[in-house]
């Protein structure tokens, strides 16, 4: 199977591999997928004020899944939490030129972003953010 140059680049030089301290209040952690399905993504963000200052990932999955999560961490850094919520899987598909059978990898990355943000918000007064959202 042929991978796009961008997928290969992220696979060979993954950005932001690692872990943040999940117990810190400023860190949000999202773990999505399941081992039986061949994909598990852990994505973490560190937030100061309303801005994401750091992002890390670890992924068990195919090359496209690794690339999707690596790209997601790149995009997350420097964005505000609200901007991060705007990231769509279709943007990841486009950026990495993912074939149809790999679209689920991008969906998983979007889920991981949402899950990490939800974790951060629940740690830091979910009520506040709901108010903002409404």
């Amino acid at each position: 199977m042929a991978y796009s140059d961008k997928v290969l680049d992220h696979y060979n030089n993954p950005r932001n591999v690692g872990s943040l301290d999940k117990n810190k209040a400023s860190v949000g952690t999202g773990v999505v997928g399941a081992p039986e399905c061949g994909d598990v993504m852990k994505l973490q963000i560190e937030v100061q004020g309303d801005r994401i200052v750091d992002a890390k990932f670890k992924t068990f999955g195919c090359g496209s899944a690794i690339a999707s999560s690596s790209l997601a961490t790149e995009w997350l850094k420097g964005k505000t939490v609200d901007e991060a919520l705007e990231i769509k899987n279709t943007q990841i598909v486009e950026e990495l030129s993912l074939p149809p059978v790999k679209i689920h990898c991008s969906v998983l990355a979007e889920d991981a972003i949402k899950s990490a943000i939800a974790d951060f918000k629940s740690k830091n007064g979910a009520a506040d953010s709901t108010k903002k959202a409404s």
């Binding site: 872990s19 773990v31 399941a34 081992p35 994909d39 852990k42 670890k58 969906v107 889920d111």
Partner: peptide
């Protein structure tokens, strides 16, 4: 790069984890 390897090294039993959103 594997979150599973990290969890196992931290002593987590993967079979007890409630996995979210499998595809």
């Amino acid at each position: 790069m594997s979150p599973l390897y990290e969890m196992v090294k931290d002593g987590v039993d993967l079979s007890t984890v409630n996995w979210q959103g499998g595809h």
